[in-house]
């Protein structure tokens, strides 16, 4: 099982049972097809997306596992952060349909061929997709909700220490000066 992957792709050995390999958006479908036919990695167990905002890319992770559930293979595919759609795997794996619906709602990635991209968790959401790094959740909260009053008498400990030191120092000088 490992031999096929070794020669055809440059494999990264993360742990004895976890491997990773990079693939571009165009090669994704036929790499998946090759892997599922030639090796026993035939189950998609997770579809992840990491937002590397400073490198201007989304890194999609297709987590494959074999029929014996003993090894995991991570297919990592980097795409631009907007206006790029991915091919949908809903026909290859039935479970991919919901995962793609979640990523579509949370990151705004389009998946061609997946008709059920309606809302997954948020109802009537009219802001940018919330899991993108540029979405600031605290700003959204301060705009839409307000907190309970009664906590305004919070003091910043550092100023207090400085104030007390200044007061202590001035107290020491005034008796000498007076």
């Amino acid at each position: 099982m490992m031999s096929y992957l070794e020669e055809h792709y440059e494999l990264i050995h993360k742990t004895p049972r976890l491997f990773a390999l990079h693939v571009t958006r165009e090669q994704l479908l036929d790499t998946l097809h090759q892997i599922t036919t030639h090796t026993s990695f035939d189950t998609l167990s997770q579809l992840t997306c990491t937002d590397w905002i400073e490198e201007e890319r989304f890194e999609l992770g297709y987590m494959l596992t074999n029929a014996l559930r003993s090894h995991n293979l991570m297919l990592k595919c980097s795409i631009a952060r907007d206006k790029v759609t991915m091919p949908s795997l809903a026909l290859l794996f039935a479970q991919a349909e919901v995962m793609e619906r979640e990523l579509h709602e949370m990151f705004g990635i389009g998946f061609e061929g997946n008709e059920t991209l309606y809302d997954f968790a948020l109802e009537g959401w009219c802001d940018i997709p919330p899991m993108r790094r540029e979405f600031d959740t605290l700003a959204y909260v301060n705009a839409h909700y307000d907190f309970r009053e009664g906590r305004e008498d919070n003091l910043d400990v550092k100023e207090e220490i400085k104030k007390r030191k200044a007061a202590a120092k001035s107290a020491k000088e005034t008796p000498s000066g007076a």
Partner: peptide
């Protein structure tokens, strides 16, 4: 957690008074 000023100074080493 808010740090609030205390009225009676219980601990001399409490240098921020909160």
């Amino acid at each position: 957690i808010d740090m609030i000023a205390i009225d009676k100074d219980k601990n001399p080493k409490n240098n921020s008074g909160c």
